[in-house]
Design a protein around this nucleic acid. Structure first.
Lengths: 210, 210
DNA sequence: TCTTGTCAAGAACAGTGTTCTCGATACGCA
DNA sequence: TGCGTATCGAGAACACTGTTCTTGACAAGA
């Protein structure tokens, strides 16, 4: 039943936009609004559930796209992940907005949402780990942050490499925010080319062989 | 009076978050909600006015920061613009979210908002215009888009150069979205260093001398 | 003095999230 | 079989929201 509620809520997100109405969802289920509170303690809780699902769904899509590419084709895997994220985002713009847009007012993302949010980063990191690390001169405070992140995961990745992963990760969602939220609208027509071009640039920056 | 309404609305945005209540604004003005409709035909119209003001305010802040740097210090001007944008965003997170977050549901940005939105891009482009253009192999469809944009403004900037401006512009708001919306929270402590590092990288990409 | 325009108030409508009480149904156990 | 209990949904209520429309007060100009 919780699954059914989430499914209808997702449908409403897709059609009506990001302002999810509990009463509308309930109407579609031939249910009164208060009955929803048997399954979700509040509207925020329902949104949180949708957010977690979206993160997982997104990571799955990216992972599936990558797994179709030979493991030694590093740049191919890189592009597959990026395009997988983009395809998912364009196919589910409202859910994308939910997780990568401005936070919903009065809604504080609970702890459950941070782990699924990192999955795409890990995907990118795993690809870069097999390439030659670029050498950059990082500010020492930033170096410490990166070191802490790496140590916290028991990894052995060089700081410079994680740095480039974060740069690419930032850029990936930078492009997608602009595209999904319509800021490229009367500006760039060749959206796929634009996106690929940016992601190639990031692959270069991360030291992936061409 | 319209100015007063906007001022109170801005204050509400800053404290209560992005869900602006007309009735609450009216209460603060010792006015009944319907009286606001003398000055703004709808809630969306008020939001639009706030959005335009925010764009202008942001561009002014960035421009002011840049003008304090000698004009031949290209990288200095570049960093000044980027930091100016960041400082403004961190000082006005709700207004930043209004203009660079997910679009408000049911709200379509009117035509009036596209011109002020390009001001920061022009600031960056003016700096890069004085540097040596990098040469990239752009996809031809993207080349056409860039050519159209340049011709539409009567400019003579090489396509490769505008390309790098757009890359940097994308990255700038990519980093800021993550920082302002809290996605860096238990991840990067040295936010300023992190930001500067990213913007230096973009300056490199744009061919600015060190 | 009469008219016109500007402003705000107030009621009304349809919608929202949330809480509470109440009744119905079904399950396990003596 | 009968009883107690737990689960579920209905429905009313509360405090909100944006928006529209009517009404009335006030001031300026002819």
């Amino acid at each position: 039943m919780s699954q059914e509620i989430k499914a209808v809520a997702r449908r409403h997100l897709a059609t009506d936009g990001a302002d999810l109405s509990l009463r509308a969802v309930a109407r579609d289920l031939d249910i009164v609004a208060s009955a929803l509170y048997r399954y979700f303690p509040s509207r925020d809780a329902l949104l949180t559930a949708l957010i977690i699902d979206a993160y997982d769904d997104l990571a799955d899509a990216a992972g599936a796209a990558e797994s179709a590419v030979p493991r030694d084709d590093l740049r191919g895997r890189w592009l597959a992940v990026c395009r997988g994220v983009r395809d998912w985002a364009l196919a589910h713009p409202a859910e994308y907005g939910l997780i990568y847009g401005s936070p919903v007012p009065g809604y504080a993302a609970p702890e459950d949402t941070v782990e699924p949010a990192t999955k795409v980063i890990l995907l990118l990191a795993a690809i870069v780990a097999d390439a030659a690390p670029p050498s950059a001169d990082l500010p020492s405070a930033l170096h410490d942050d990166l070191h802490r992140l790496i140590a916290g995961r028991g990894s052995t990745m060089p700081e410079d490499q994680l740095d480039r992963v974060l740069v690419a990760w930032t850029h990936l969602y930078g492009v997608l925010n602009f595209e999904v939220f319509g800021r490229l609208d009367s500006m760039i027509e060749a959206r796929s080319d634009y996106f690929d071009h940016h992601m190639h640039l990031m692959a270069d920056l991360a030291g992936l062989p061409t």
